[in-house]
Design a protein around this nucleic acid. Sequence first.
DNA 1: CGCTAGATGAGA
DNA 2: CTCATCTAGCGA
Length: 206
Amino acid sequence: MREESLRLERGFFERDPVVCARDLIGCKMICGRSVGRVIETEAYATLGDAACHTARRASTRAFLANHPAGSAYVYLTYGMHWMFNVLIKGDVEGFVLVRALEAESGSDEMVARRGGAVARNLCSGPGKLTQALGINLSHNGLDLCAAGSLGFLTRASPFTERIHAGPRIGISAAKTLPWRFLLEGAGVLKTDCNAGKVVAKRANAQ
DNA sequence: CGCTAGATGAGA
DNA sequence: CTCATCTAGCGA
């Protein structure tokens, strides 16, 4: 018998952000015709985490107050890259940044939006991911648990693959929290490993 | 392959 | 001024 993938429900996102980030690995992300498996995430928390946007941005605190768990939180960084996050509201509140996917279907339109990038380079980073899926500010605030074109599907059960945890990358605060999660052996993460090195080097230089 | 520089805009 | 980034272009 074949197991059916079901949409992740609100309750999934009403837990600890770190648990959500880890459990999102291996789930499918759907955006219209484009589907990919989540292979990299990061958790951010409103308490004890200086890297969380709520620590510096009033608009993010307002967003959190006005949206349910499982809402999409999208914003621009470095003037040109959209970041796709999910609002988490458990006992601890925060966000999960979806950093990388392994394309499964609809990759023709993903490749087109990425300007002809090869598979290994298609969704292997948070900016590439949103570009491949066509995600931008218009998706901000969407309910990912509703029956829309944007959301997540449950991962296979039992889930036997290994998940690696390590420090988050590309940030300047709270660098040591091991809140970055990767599917082991996904083989799509070279670029992000490089990004991690760059960050580490900068840290060493100071 | 590794590494650097520069693009580019919102928020506080 | 700071950023949850990416890519082209350079040198080895």
